[in-house]
Write a protein that binds this DNA or RNA. Sequence first.
DNA 1: CGTGGTCTTGACACGATTCAAGCCCCGTGG
DNA 2: CCACGGGGCTTGAATCGTGTCAAGACCACG
Lengths: 249, 249
Amino acid sequence: MAVLDIKFTSHDCGSCPIRHRAVCARCDSDELAMLEEIKYYRSFEAGQTVIWSGDHMDFLGSVVTGVATLSHTLEDGRTQMVGLLLPSDFVGRPGRELAAYDVTAITDITMCCFRRKPFEQMMDRTPHIAQRLLQMTLDELDAAREWMLILGRKTAREKIASLLAILGRRDASLGLGGPVGDEIVFDLPLTREAMADYLGLTLETVSRQVSALKKDGLIELEGKRRVRVPSYDALLAETGDDSDGGLMV
Amino acid sequence: MAVLDIKFTSHDCGSCPIRHRAVCARCDSDELAMLEEIKYYRSFEAGQTVIWSGDHMDFLGSVVTGVATLSHTLEDGRTQMVGLLLPSDFVGRPGRELAAYDVTAITDITMCCFRRKPFEQMMDRTPHIAQRLLQMTLDELDAAREWMLILGRKTAREKIASLLAILGRRDASLGLGGPVGDEIVFDLPLTREAMADYLGLTLETVSRQVSALKKDGLIELEGKRRVRVPSYDALLAETGDDSDGGLMV
DNA sequence: CGTGGTCTTGACACGATTCAAGCCCCGTGG
DNA sequence: CCACGGGGCTTGAATCGTGTCAAGACCACG
């Protein structure tokens, strides 16, 4: 997490760490200047709720640093995570005033927030923002569908393996802990309970299956939150996906 | 299904039954004329596969009549439906050449197909199409997230009740079988197996829970495929969602 | 050194799956 | 006209995986 935990304080889009991946990725300098007019930063500590489902949202925004979650809760307390928000991910839906999900910071986070009305007006005028948002939304939809397969059809062991594979793939693509053979190492930004809410399991089952994968030599733990995967391919074989990798993008 | 089963043969967008809900909804007459240039119709019979995951797709398109599904299959045969495509729903992803999911007709269907390349060029030029596609994609993402909650956290009984509530809500919104009290009646376009693939269950469990809901008076069946719900509110109470209706849109 | 949060492990219960048998309905062919 | 066959569906019995409840370990922090 070291890289992601740096508090981002500058107000200059030019030096923003998510400049080229967020909703503003395609904007030119004029458009960025307009965004600077309507944006502000907010920070939340790990564990804080950013927004409650049903709340009025007067902003839309991007996660700049840290990790947050989107989740649904049933009245009896069962909760299902429906989105894992990493740096550059977008929060809120243009045209919707009331939040549809709970948003919770699970590490300390910084968000870049745009005032709703001017942002929506800007979306209508500058296609670059809408184009990028469409691309990001299509990516999220793909991720949601892969996730649905995990929730609906995989065993507990396959679910854990899939989650670790997804997190590992992401960190590998960021170039943290470069590839040595197909070994990968990464930090787990989720508690056992958050993993359970992601996967539709109980935290006890998560704990048992993590232990089982460890016993079988598929993963090693340094502390509770740092994971070493000696063979990424061996891990993939435990996900139940097609042998070609499964995680088509 | 009577209304949806009508074969649509005209090539004139003006009289198209999904003119105002599909990806072309915002297009003006000039834009429609351009679409007419690059479109063609295809029909598939119930049970036919429209596209296999991994196939090259040389078109994008909309379901005009009938019902189709999007699904993932694991190598050992477990399958999870990840999309239920109703008239006006869009198939394919701009910029992606290879299909990511299997598309299957579950009733006879008609599709309005656009040749890929010219459609993608047109998307870049005319914001009306991209705007509408963004809106539709955001709706699908919401549906996928509601679906994830169902898959991850609901019991078999709640899953069945939720699916029936979703299908009933849709048919009610189309004004078929108008509201009498809160009774609704609708056709079930899905087999027990398709319902199972939707909900991450086995077909036996689906059958058992449908029987249980029937025994408890929450639904009545006329034949296997026509459902009467005497009280929609009572059905909602079985979904496990918040009492306020849960299905926020 | 105590406290609280997080995680692990065990024993047991229960809900969903699996495997199997048979029903219902409709279309086909004798 | 009826027998036959098959697809879709239902139901039962046994099994298995995951959830539930409970106890305790580990670790950071005051």
